[in-house]
Design a protein around this nucleic acid. Structure first.
Lengths: 319, 319
DNA sequence: TCAAAAGTGTTATCCTTACACCCATGT
DNA sequence: ACATGGGTGTAAGGATAACACTTTTGA
């Protein structure tokens, strides 16, 4: 109950900053050379309560300073305090608690190929199995699930059941786009991804480095876990908050909007139902103009009806 | 990006530990004498990463040491890092980041009247306007809403709209039992509750101390805000996770279960619909025995079907 | 005239909500 | 007999999921 015995600890901030361009959800990563390969991380930095009144303000400031980005919606994800969570290169015995954030940013542009430093990267290159827009990914049945099943065989019931639910392995279960974190954690525990090997976990297939085309690109520290948390949260929140409008332009066609939504959710939606939901919830209003950039019939342009925020308790698109 | 420049900070843990007895949701508070009154706080203490591998383990340990309680379900709520969040009595310039937790505990017993120290207290004595089980609380229309409306009159549109949504002030809007935090924050911003006065906020009615029978009992620091967050989270989570079974005994009647649920949600549910949901989701199974403690027809006893956790992706009771 | 994409009408189904009613026990 | 609380059937209304179809442009 006494406060004075507290240990002094360093607070780190990690940010999953989401953008969107050309039907591709993007995530801001910092790329670093590492013995003739490259390693990605999320932007992260210290939180200094002397300089910033709240953690969120600290985050906005360091992202602005480091990447020149103004953030829109920002929300806290989770605070990790694991001691042996990761070995820091410059760790002189500081104990680190790290606070993860999700943020949205307009006008993101894809990183130049081969560039280092900060840049936006398609998020599915870290989670290829999460993109079902071209149908169920082949890598699931060809590589991921066999490897996971192998591991589960020699594991316990609890693991087998988590596997069953997270990957919808039984008749009657359906793939839940929100379970990104569950699936990532299972892959980690099974020792199938780079981070597990880096953390010195007993790997089930220790002989080979996991193929990034199958198991995704590894990230430094636990940053891919934070990203998984961010995607889970965003996919879930889109259903009851109009966050999607922070990623499209001021004016957009309904197809634009749907494509953006589908890119984030990683799956397709029924066109008519999507439109009805948007209309029923009064989320958009026509601008009166049309766009002929479509290739076919020109599309009506819409804008976000900001007023919904004042009218409805939970405006979103639950599909 | 460099870690070494981090400021050293103390990490505090605050826990909202929920129990249940006799149709009353309880919360563990620590009561302290304060110039011939008493002041309640949540149990809180420092997190020491040298002693505990994760924050959650640290929390379990300090609750066990301090209150002798074994916790069931534990989940993180939010991390606050406000500089001027509250003045600590023994603050020698330490900057505090505090991590809030929600936890459930079986077998809680109501605090002895007048006792000091740790004990379970009905949570509605901190939020009397949140208990709608005996109908819409009179204090809302008689005191709370008039005071809030007064304040909103001299405030801006954003405040008026938040007020409208949080308290369902218009035809077509319904009281949302999950918006506990929204409502608390409005009362705080309006300067209507004790904490706002303690924090030196400009009070709208500075002349009188708020009546605890109307505006609830104040708590130390921002602990009532953490409790509001906990209630919001718990009410929401009950709808898709079977947490309710951590608060009832091994065996229970369906009416017991419903009463517990209603106590937490702060409102009544349709008996048949509640039962159908419990049955449809296969959450319980009959033990085959009956209880004649009921006063009327003896009731069948049920137990939680643990297997649902392995079968269904999101088993809960959405009413 | 055809391809491409926009945009719409309608139905079958399920889930939610609420009504009204019956049942088994103690006093 | 009747009060008390346990326990159930069923119908109305609304939300959801999917079908197939028409419209408007550019090439």
């Amino acid at each position: 109950m006494t406060r004075s015995e507290s240990t002094r600890i360093a607070i780190g901030l990690s940010a999953a900053i989401v953008g969107y361009q050309d039907q591709t959800p993007l995530i801001l990563t910092v790329r670093e050379a590492q013995n003739d390969a490259a390693m990605d991380m999320l932007p992260f930095g210290p939180f200094d309560p002397l300089k910033h009144r709240t953690i969120e303000l600290g985050l906005r400031a360091f992202v602005l300073a480091q990447a020149g980005l103004e953030l829109g919606h920002v929300e806290q994800l989770y605070t990790f305090g694991d001691r042996g969570r990761h070995a820091l290169p410059d760790d002189e015995g500081a104990h680190v608690v790290s606070v993860g954030y999700l943020a949205l940013s307009r006008g993101a542009k894809l990183r130049d190929k081969g560039s280092m430093g900060a840049g936006f990267q398609p998020w599915y290159c870290y989670f290829p199995w999460e993109d079902w827009r071209m149908g169920r990914p082949d890598i699931l049945d060809e590589h991921i699930l066999p490897a996971l099943q192998d591991w589960a065989q020699s594991s316990d019931d609890a693991h087998r059941n988590r596997l069953k639910l997270a990957f919808a392995l039984e008749e009657g279960l359906t793939w839940d786009d929100e379970r990104v974190l569950d699936r990532y954690e299972l892959l980690y525990e099974a020792g199938l991804i780079g981070e597990a090997i880096a953390d010195g976990r007993p790997s089930f297939t220790p002989s080979m480095q996991p193929d990034p085309a199958i198991f995704g690109k590894a990230m430094r520290y636990d940053h891919r876990r934070i990203l998984a948390t961010a995607i889970s949260r965003l996919r879930s929140k889109l259903k009851y908050r109009p966050l999607i409008f922070e990623l499209v332009g001021e004016e957009f066609t309904l197809t634009d909007l749907q494509k953006t939504f589908e890119a984030l959710a990683g799956r397709h939606f029924h066109k008519q139902n999507f439109r009805r939901l948007v209309e029923t919830n009064a989320l958009v209003e026509p601008t009166g103009t049309t766009s002929d950039q479509t290739g076919g019939r020109p599309a009506q342009l819409f804008r976000f009806r900001r007023e919904v925020l004042l009218e409805r308790p939970a405006p979103g698109i639950r599909v």
